[in-house]
Amino acid sequence: MKNIDLAWLVDDDKIYTYVMTRQLQQLDCCGKLETFGNGQQAIDALQSNSGNAGELPSLILLDLNMPVLDGWQFLDQFAELRLSKRVCIYIVSSSIDPLDHDRIQQYNCVANFYVKPVKRDDIQQIIAEVKRLVDQ
């Protein structure tokens, strides 16, 4: 059995999503991986599946700078959603602006924060944390 049934990548950087998908495949830890090009697409998908736990991810790897709806706006809207499943959000961004780091602390729904590029060890760490939470 996989550690995580469903994970989402929310990022507009196609190369990053490709690389991340490959890394997750190599680690063979996710049942299924879906990619969204911006925050709005992800929010729409969460809303339409809010009662359908099978279609909701256990893990979202979220970028901050994206068109249409950026990471912050995604988090604000995410907080308003009523979901039938616990979703862990990890921020993965290129930002090293300390203001961004402080701002992340204000969001309870964010489990942790990583600066790109994410190392293999980091991914394994994230997976382990999420698995522990899901198993609880």
């Binding site: 950087d13 690389v19 290129s94 090293i96 602006d97 994410v118």
Partner: peptide
């Protein structure tokens, strides 16, 4: 400075990750 750092980072980050994948 943050813009520069952010924008250079996202590309160099990809280059690093792709290089790792190519090698494997």
């Amino acid at each position: 400075a943050h813009i520069v750092s952010h924008n250079l980072r996202s590309h160099t980050g990809n280059i690093k990750a792709l290089t790792d994948l190519v090698l494997r």
